[in-house]
Write a protein that binds this DNA or RNA. Structure first.
Lengths: 165, 165
DNA sequence: GAATCTATGTATAACGA
DNA sequence: TTCGTTATACATAGATT
């Protein structure tokens, strides 16, 4: 970058970091836009910045990003592999680890729920302050999740059928 | 860019486009990485390219991206607004629709659980063809979906209760 | 802080092996 | 096709207003 190399490390100075963030965020999204145009690919960028009002910043748009991310989630996380797993114990270790993670997630979720209840009880007029389109958005998201689950069901059923052959 | 300005439009030449894609994808992800480091933000990039084997390309990693995207989806799509909803009937219609969806969700969820039981009873052979990290991913994804749905259920129920007051 | 302004560092289009 | 190489366009750090 200009006028001096930048050490690739966290910028401790608040003002500098914020300025850099703003510039580079713009640059990143421009690059994404260009790639998308030049090569005709769908792309999205999501940035979670504690600075920016706790809402993620996205390119190209919230709705488009949601749509793409749904696709992403529907993609099979399981890649076909011919590698045979020789060590069953390894799998068991993994499973134990996963179960630990699940426990944490459940705890986290519970906390979030409680926070939400609390938040919504702050005032009685919650729904009165919701835009129709946002409600729409919410319905849309739920639909998407249904799709994802459906997809996984089918994947599993297919696996099952194939397994039986 | 070098040696000639690039017209910001779809590159029709296959070889050129592919080369450009590869270079720019690398550049984009590097930029994302730098932004993330310099400003300590979480960011992800997802590219759907018909070229690349129909699998999306992601930064920083599949798992990290999934995690971030779950967060993104959990973010309230509902922005605060001072606009008051004058038509209560509209809201009630929405709620009815939502309740219908919830019913479906419960059914789906039940199906899913059953399928999972089925899946787990396939016997040990299936696991032999799945990479450890994918197993990890799968469990994680399922849990995320459950969390998301749980979250939305609660949001809606709370909204409904508040409405009744 | 935000907007502008350069000097410089980077990314990359075109080319050649 | 996929690598290097190189000339240029672009992004941007630091300074200034």
């Amino acid at each position: 970058m200009a006028r001096g190399r930048v050490k690739l490390a966290y910028i401790t100075n608040d003002a500098t970091r914020k300025a850099t963030y703003k510039k580079r965020k713009k640059g990143l999204m421009k690059k994404a836009s260009e790639l998308s145009t030049l090569c005709d690919v769908e792309a999205c960028v999501v940035i979670f910045s504690s600075t920016s009002d706790s809402q993620p910043e996205v390119w190209p748009s919230t709705v488009a990003t949601h749509r793409m991310l749904s696709n992403f989630k529907m993609m099979p996380a399981i890649e076909q592999s011919n590698r045979t797993m020789t060590q069953e114990s390894l799998v068991k270790k993994r499973i134990a680890k996963v179960e630990e993670q699940l426990k944490k997630l459940h705890e986290e979720n519970r906390k979030k729920e409680l926070t939400q209840v609390m938040f919504q009880n702050l005032g009685g007029n919650y729904l009165n302050n919701v835009k129709e389109e946002d409600l729409n958005d919410l319905s849309w998201l739920i639909d998407q999740n249904l799709n994802i689950i459906d997809n996984k069901l089918h994947m599993r059923i297919e696996s099952f059928v194939l397994q039986e052959k």
